[in-house]
Design a protein around this nucleic acid. Structure first.
Lengths: 196, 196
DNA sequence: GAAGTTACGTACCGCGAGTATGTACGTCAA
DNA sequence: TTGACGTACATACTCGCGGTACGTAACTTC
């Protein structure tokens, strides 16, 4: 494993660490997962983890950011399929709910993140990914006259909160495929409330 | 401190422990708060804590339950003031948002509980307090014809999720008194969606 | 009032986060 | 090319904290 540049070595190691962190933090949760375990799963030692990350929290944060990047990309992709603003919003919300079926995503993003990172931190990172998308969708709908005006950042947050609860609810279901439509129907009812 | 019955001693000690747990867990968060610190704040030692509670999680759970008991009592009291079902719902939601101004409540109930206790546990306890109240309110409104029918347990959860996010948002505001009406206005918009 | 139970306090163990230090590899100037 | 320097780790250690074992004092029961 020699003859590579420093940057290549770093990227390789940090990549492996973040991937391992997502797997273990996602499967067992933050507290019961030791840094040694993450490092071992990444094929390195604790020293490497502490060299690249400030500590356990920083490593978790990296995993959290990666989760959000993925889901927001999926949201943008799904919403982009629709040209009607309110349809795009519905599609985006449904995509988010489907994404909540991933246990790792739930554990890291919905359960552990608010406790491990401060709420301010979580909010800032979520804003740069999920919330920005949702907020933009709402703004387009308002500008086009499909949705009533109001405090859009607040509205986006409320919708997001409802979706998170919905996601947990959906995951707990023993037949998510069957419950998703029922859940989506209730969620749509709230989105309909925004119609003018 | 002698001449008391065993039940009195137990009640005294557990009461002091739970009060101290609410203070410390609420102020510093779950992880950075040691059991020794809680016991010391309660005027006892770790042995007493482990005698009455199974462990740190069990102690936290007791504090969590206590928080929920208080807020649900406040909700019932506030909603009871109104006789119009939808008005009672609005009043209850607003009371919950006001309750979120308490930092300890936010830290324990909104931030740490889902991570420390399993989501199943949190859901079960919340159901016995907050959710039951909300669900009953919705049922009355539906029965009276003021709200549209649907999947009420799911609907209650979605509303609760939105309220939790709203509560955090409100707490972060530097002027909560001024922002509460704006937030309540957006929340009301979602409640209006339920009107038939 | 003696035996048994409950309510603690105290001393200890083990695990895991964080740190200090050593070492191999990559980088860059002369 | 080679020596000096910086970077990317590994290894060994410390220490705080959750949990446990055990001892003791207070209460209860017969």
């Amino acid at each position: 494993m020699t003859g590579r540049t420093q940057a290549e070595r770093s990227d390789e190691t940090t990549g492996r660490l973040v991937r391992a962190a997502r797997r273990l933090f996602g499967a067992r949760g933050y507290a019961p997962t030791s840094i040694d375990a993450v490092a071992a799963a990444a094929g390195v030692t604790k020293g490497a983890a502490y060299h690249h990350f400030g500590g356990k929290v920083a490593l978790f944060r990296a995993a959290f950011v990666r989760e959000l990047e993925e889901v927001s990309a999926a949201l943008v992709r799904a919403a982009g399929q629709e040209h009607e603003p309110m349809e795009a919003l519905r599609r985006g919300c449904r995509t988010f709910l489907e994404h909540c079926l991933d246990p790792g995503f739930r554990q890291i993003v919905l359960l552990d993140a608010p406790s491990v990172l401060s709420w301010e931190t979580v909010r800032a990172i979520e804003h740069d990914h999920l919330l920005r998308v949702l907020h933009d969708g709402l703004r387009v709908a308002v500008a086009g006259g499909q949705a009533a005006d109001g405090d859009l950042p607040v509205r986006a947050r409320l919708v997001f909160g409802a979706l998170c609860e919905g996601g947990m609810l959906l995951a707990r279901s023993q037949d998510p495929a069957a419950d998703l439509p029922r859940l989506a129907a209730e969620a749509d009812r709230f989105l309909e409330a925004l119609r003018r």
